[in-house]
């Protein structure tokens, strides 16, 4: 929770105090015995960080403590995840597990210092969002069929901008190219922002981006939405078809959830799971996530663990084929 500058800090603490005081149930065990750290393995300010903070904000009062968001960014979200994998399994250190650190990193990094399944007790899914393929509005291809036609007509195929080598959007681009039988060359940027700038400017004709960060640009016409990667159309951009509709066997989401170090007592994991799901069921939270372009998703710890195992299996061959493996 926020304890940042002089005055508001006290207000906030007071606010927490009152909300906690009212429904405080008798706690079976002495957990939590102090503030809980939620490690966000990304730099602050991105959509994922914002979402994590939204959850942390509401989770704290429910547990009768504060949930402190701590950003430990770097190395494709693996630095923060490594930190938590090695932390004490007492339920006071959690990590925002996500597609990069727990879905792709196991296949991408040879020297990864954790096992995405064995070193964690996965607690709960939080949210997911599809990716979207966008095009410069002046680019000749206005639909996916035209993109395929243009790409086939050019000997070099087409370029697409993307946030980083080994990112889910990079790999999604490769999957789309393979499924559609066209040649798409990734052009990497340091983050989605600069890649979007160059797509708007027409330096690259196409881009793959997470839907939350692309929605505004699509709605305001700076780029054209070509296709989304969800199982069905996204509520935020209902007129953009899915790859599935277009006949490609691709359904892909960016996701994140919350995980604890392996060995965290099962009761704590269950309790956290219940409280997180209660937070997600809150309409205000759902609306907020909706605005941000994500869908909240409730899963039990077992379901979330199985989901992560499935994701690792899906991405492994794609990483292999991309040649992006980092040694």
């Amino acid at each position: 929770m926020t304890r940042r500058i002089a005055l508001p800090r006290r207000w906030v603490l007071a606010a927490i105090g009152t909300t906690v005081a009212a429904p405080a149930p008798v706690r079976a065990q002495a957990w939590p015995s102090g503030p809980i750290r939620l490690v966000v393995p990304f730099a602050p300010g991105g959509t994922t960080d914002v979402m994590a903070r939204l959850v942390a904000d509401r989770l704290g009062p429910r547990l009768g403590t504060t949930v402190i968001v701590e950003n430990r960014a770097g190395a494709g979200a693996t630095i923060g995840s490594t930190f938590v994998a090695q932390a004490a399994p007492d339920g006071h250190t959690l990590v925002m597990s996500n597609i990069a650190s727990h879905g792709i990193a196991p296949s991408l990094y040879r020297n990864l210092r954790y096992d995405a399944l064995k070193d964690f007790a996965h607690v709960a899914m939080v949210t997911r969002n599809p990716s979207v393929m966008v095009a410069n509005p002046d680019f000749e291809a206005k639909s996916f069929a035209e993109v395929v036609r243009v790409a086939k007509a050019r000997p070099d195929g087409l370029d697409y901008g993307v946030s980083g080598a080994g990112s889910s959007n990079h790999l999604l681009g490769l999957r789309v190219a393979k499924a559609a039988g066209i040649r798409l060359t990734p052009v990497f940027y340091r983050g989605a922002g600069p890649a979007m700038t160059d797509t708007i400017a027409g330096v690259v004709p196409l881009m793959f981006d997470g839907l939350p960060s692309a929605t505004g640009h699509i709605r305001e016409g700076r780029v054209r939405g070509i296709a989304t990667s969800g199982a069905e159309r996204a509520a935020a951009v209902p007129d953009i078809p899915t790859f599935k509709e277009l006949g490609l066997d691709i359904v892909s989401y960016q996701w994140f959830g919350i995980s604890a170090p392996a060995g965290t007592p099962a009761e704590i994991v269950q309790r956290l799971n219940r409280e997180i799901r209660a937070v997600l069921a809150d309409t205000a939270v759902m609306q907020r996530f909706d605005q941000l372009g994500g869908t909240t998703l409730e899963m039990t710890p077992d379901q979330y663990t199985a989901f992560i195992a499935e994701e690792i299996a899906v991405w492994a061959p794609v990483v292999e084929a991309s040649g992006a493996r980092v040694d």
Binding site: R3, R4, I5, A6, R9, S33, G34, P35, R37, I68, E70, H92
Partner: peptide
């Protein structure tokens, strides 16, 4: 700690 609220442990025994 008080003003910028950086995340740092205070004492060897604190959480």
């Amino acid at each position: 700690i008080w003003y910028l609220d950086i995340r740092i442990r205070l004492f060897p025994w604190s959480h």
